[in-house]
Write a protein that binds this DNA or RNA. Structure first.
Lengths: 110, 110
DNA sequence: AAAATATACCTAATTTGATTATGTATCGGA
DNA sequence: TCCGATACATAATCAAATTAGGTATATTTT
């Protein structure tokens, strides 16, 4: 089993959490921040990230604005109002999930 | 996003952990114990469980013995020596993963 | 006694969420 | 000048689950 298998399914709430904390981020920045925060443990691949961002935008959870930086274009993502609501729920679920995992891994402490 | 999406990828270490703690378990018992420990939060589907148990047996991580209970057969799984070693590593990875998640969800506390 | 639910195993088809590979293009430093 | 970093994107593939189906015994409820 590949170690990266573990966070399959956690990518969406992770992105939402980062956007909630930082307000406005672009894709590449998200990959770098996750790498930094987790000291290289979680590396988001671009093939997973970009399609997911597009999906969330399509669902009205994220909205975008383009910004020119030099000759390049950056695509900034922000949580919509609906997206913020969704994020709160996602965080609750993530919290419950982590507690459940904790209960299994450490039944004595719980 | 479905809430059960979250623990996609965590099933294998969960099973290994339970077998490490309980020594000897059969499939149905694993589903029930997970449900009980997590107060219904994590429900392992049989379609995921049985093929995974078979795979782990094939890989020499688990070994089985059949036991007759009344007119029915129960298939008990136990960690092999190699399986115990694998489990230790899997637990390390799971721990690291959970810490990484914690770092993202709660950057201030970490 | 019959019906429903729980126990106990299993597999096949499909879905989903990722990886891997590939492509385009700009920017900065050795 | 070339390489690595920045910055976006998509297509093919893989892996791990869900959904749905099947078999059969045991127990509880009506």
């Amino acid at each position: 089993m590949n170690k990266s298998t573990l966070y399959k399914g956690c990518l969406e709430p992770i992105i939402m959490r980062l956007l909630k904390d930082n307000g406005r981020m672009y894709g590449y920045q998200i990959t770098q921040m996750v790498k930094e925060i987790t000291k290289g443990e979680l590396q988001i691949t671009e093939g997973a990230l970009y399609p997911l961002l597009h999906k969330l935008e399509e669902q009205g959870i994220l909205e975008t604005e383009l910004e020119n930086v030099g000759n390049r274009i950056r695509k900034y993502y922000t949580l919509t109002k609906a997206g913020k609501k969704q994020t709160s729920m996602a965080m609750e679920e993530l919290k419950t999930f982590m507690q459940s995992l904790q209960l299994i891994v450490n039944p004595k402490l719980a």
